[in-house]
Amino acid sequence: MNKEYSVLLLPGWQNSDADHWQSRWEQAHGYQRVQQHNWQQPLRGDWTVQLNEAVLAAPTAVVLVAHSLGCILTAWWARHAPPAVVGKVQAALLVAPGDVEQADLRQHLPGWVPIARQRLPFAAVVVGSQNDPYCRLARAQQLAADWGAQWVDAGAAGHINSASQLGDWPQGHALLQDLVKDTVHGKR
């Protein structure tokens, strides 16, 4: 466990299973998963409160690691949470944002539209795939631009989840470590 910063994992809709890289990072590195009350029928307001409480409870500066709906949550929370709480977050790694504005996801995730598209008040990297079924490549790149985030193309990795068979996803963890080095350690 790092004493300089706390890493909070923000899984997406239906949580991250045991084979998901987020779960592997939780086990290997002691990162903390933000628990939600309902993973199957997520409520944006409830998820926002849970994230806010987790950031407040963190003993140090915070780095967020979000996947899919967790990315959408991060942008919404950053726009609506008190500035003093948002200020605890130093950086965010946003992986495979789910486009809740596309028709098929909108019907499964009511209440998550619109996507907050303001520039994030902390450093961020968005990692997306060329063949993500939940967010077209151009859309993911546009979200990265709107959020003021660096874009990283993960190739044809699908939704960058368990089905992608990434294992511990060392390339993703290297991106996180570079982001931490550049932000938490004061180089940005």
Score class of each variant (00 low, 15 high):
A163D: 15
A144V: 02
Y134C: 00
N131Y: 04
D146T: 06
I160F: 07
A154K: 05
N161C: 12
R136G: 10
S162L: 05
G155T: 06
A145D: 10
Y134H: 11
Q130N: 03
Q141I: 03
A138S: 15
R139P: 02
A144Y: 04
Q130V: 06
A163T: 12
V152R: 12
H159D: 12
S164A: 14
L166Y: 10
A145Y: 10
G167C: 09
P133G: 10
G167V: 08
A157N: 08
C135E: 00
A157Q: 11
Q165K: 15
L137M: 12
A154D: 08
L166R: 13
A154M: 01
D153F: 00
L166F: 10
D146N: 13
A154G: 08
S129T: 07
H159K: 06
G167R: 05
A156R: 13
A138D: 15
R136W: 02
Y134G: 01
S162W: 04
S129L: 06
W147S: 06
A145V: 11
L166K: 12
Y134W: 13
D146F: 03
N161K: 13
W147I: 03
W151N: 02
N161Q: 10
D146A: 08
A156T: 14
L137A: 14
A140L: 14
Q165L: 15
Y134S: 03
D132H: 00
A163C: 11
A156P: 09
P133V: 02
S162K: 07
Y134V: 03
L166C: 11
A144C: 08
A145K: 13
L143I: 02
L166H: 13
Q130P: 00
L143K: 00
P133M: 05
P133R: 14
P133W: 05
A138Q: 14
S162M: 07
D132K: 03
Q165E: 15
L166T: 10
W151M: 00
